[in-house]
Amino acid sequence: MQTVTLKVEGMSCGHCVNSVEGAVREVGAEGKVNLSAGEVTVAFDESKVTLQAIKAAIEEQGYDVA
């Protein structure tokens, strides 16, 4: 299991938190958003999902992953 913290730009409310955490969950990872820091901490199994797939899922929701 790998844990990574990603900087996510464009999050500003509870809906944003739900969108990002839901997108991460859909690709098979677990994410916890820190809204005030503009970050999401993601835990995932590298044998099941790639970091690139997680970033793409977040970006599909309309947010920028730095």
Rank of each mutant, 00 (worst) to 15 (best):
Q2A: 12
T3H: 05
T5E: 12
T5M: 10
L6Y: 08
E9L: 15
E9F: 07
E9S: 11
E9A: 14
G10D: 11
M11Q: 12
S12C: 03
C13M: 13
C13R: 11
C13Y: 09
C13D: 09
H15C: 09
C16D: 08
C16F: 05
C16K: 11
V17I: 15
V17K: 11
S19Q: 13
E21L: 14
E21G: 08
A23W: 00
A23Y: 04
E26P: 02
V27F: 10
V27R: 00
G28C: 05
G28A: 03
G28I: 03
E30D: 10
V33C: 00
N34A: 06
N34T: 02
L35W: 04
L35E: 01
S36R: 01
A37D: 08
A37I: 00
A37N: 07
G38T: 06
E39N: 15
E39I: 02
E39S: 05
V42Q: 02
A43D: 14
A43F: 05
F44S: 00
F44H: 06
D45Y: 05
E46A: 11
S47V: 11
S47L: 06
K48I: 13
L51R: 00
Q52R: 05
Q52M: 13
A53V: 08
I54H: 08
A56F: 10
A56T: 13
A56E: 15
A57W: 07
I58L: 02
E59I: 12
E60K: 15
E60F: 01
E60Q: 15
Q61R: 15
G62P: 06
Y63Q: 14
D64V: 15
D64Q: 10
D64L: 15
V65W: 03
V65P: 09
A66Q: 14
A66I: 07
